[in-house]
């Protein structure tokens, strides 16, 4: 039984000028200790789908329209009473956010913020909680934690703050860690350190990690499986090898071609033609079709069936690949 089973998750934002279908029928599973990557462009719904799981989307205008997200086979996160969900947040599922500069409360000492999950979820006393907090700061490589813990966030560098965020998220030994672009706001030199850190802590604690990122490099480096998202839906889902070497969706391929380092110097960079679709418009069929090099009439027709099994657990939403009309490996030869 998977640790987390998300089915048909649909989150819409009811704005003044229409409904933004930010997440539109997303299904995936997460096993214990597994590392799942969710990759996609800005606005593809990767963050919103994770925030929806923990009821962190602004409501209104956001609303979870349908779907289930069952944790440990017992509780549906999308339907759990607020109080039940609050007890899960920070205890069984923790989060690390993109911008460590703004994600820590500037008005409170690091110590106050670090011990909070322990006070709330484990009922520890201040002294014991503080001891654990210092311990977990040391575990994420902050030296002299006894002294540092009494500082305020602005006295820390960006990389240090992200370490604090990670230590704070893992302090309750959660079953799932959701890392929303954990390295995007950091210096390149620090990025690798942070990824290594999460990986190491994950190994020690057996935590399952969901990486939300637009950085294919991060995905390739740390993930077991990957969901590629576009326009609020999953386009392709598979292991890292399947996604990178055996891609079964034109969008995934186009994304990989867009990585600058794969281009010869001096040649203009590859970009996917067109722009991401307007999510307020109702659509039928494949959302990527208008920008797709292999698009044909039936891609947007009634036969389009969304994400479906391609080979074993490798899934794709590309109708032409599913129907065997399109072999992306052949095409690229």
């Amino acid at each position: 039984m998977p640790l987390l089973e998300v089915n048909d998750l649909t989150t819409w934002f009811h704005m003044r000028d229409g409904i933004v279908r930010a997440v539109d029928g997303v299904s995936f599973t997460l096993d214990r200790g597994e590392t799942l990557g969710i990759v996609g462009e800005s606005g593809s719904g990767k963050s919103v789908s994770c925030y929806s799981l923990l009821d962190l989307i602004p409501k209104p205008p956001g609303r979870i329209e349908r779907g289930t997200a069952v944790l440990g086979g017992e509780v549906d996160l999308l339907r759990a009473p607020r109080e039940v969900l609050r007890r899960i947040r920070g205890k069984r599922i923790a989060m690390v956010f993109q911008d460590p500069m703004t994600s820590l409360n500037p008005y409170l000492r690091i110590s106050t913020q670090m011990i909070e999950p322990l006070l709330i979820h484990e009922g520890l006393g201040n002294r014991e909680a503080l001891r654990r907090a210092i311990e977990s700061l040391e575990e994420v490589g902050i030296h002299d934690a006894v002294r540092q813990i009494d500082l305020y966030p602005h006295q820390f560098s960006g990389g240090m703050r992200q370490r604090v965020m990670i230590a704070m998220a893992l302090i309750t030994h959660p079953e799932i860690l959701i890392a929303d672009e954990p390295t995007t706001a950091l210096d390149v030199t620090v990025q690798a350190q942070i990824l290594e850190l999460i990986k190491a802590r994950q190994r020690e604690l057996g935590t399952a990690v969901i990486y939300v990122t637009h950085d294919l490099g991060v995905i390739a480096g740390v993930c077991d499986r990957v969901n590629v998202m576009y326009a609020g839906t999953i386009m392709e889902s598979g292991t890292v090898d399947e996604i990178f070497y055996n891609s079964a969706h034109p969008y995934t391929q186009a994304l990989q071609q867009s990585i600058p380092s794969l281009h010869d110097k001096g040649k203009s960079l590859y970009t996917i033609p067109g722009a991401p679709p307007d999510l307020t418009e109702e659509r039928s069929g494949c959302p990527f079709a208008p920008r797709c090099a292999y698009e044909e009439a039936h891609c947007t027709g009634p036969n389009y069936r969304g994400l479906d099994a391609f080979r074993g657990r490798h899934k794709t939403a590309c109708l032409r690949v599913l129907e065997g009309e399109l072999n992306l490996k052949e095409e690229n030869r």
Binding site: L54, L56, R86, R87, I88, R89, G90, K91, A94, M95, F97, D99, T102, S103, L104, N105, P106, E116, P117, I120, H121, M165, M168
Partner: peptide, 14 residues
């Protein structure tokens, strides 16, 4: 509306 309030929510703060 600040990010750190979202962090607090994610921690399960009442």
């Amino acid at each position: 509306s600040q990010d750190y309030i979202r962090t607090a929510r994610a921690k399960g703060v009442p």
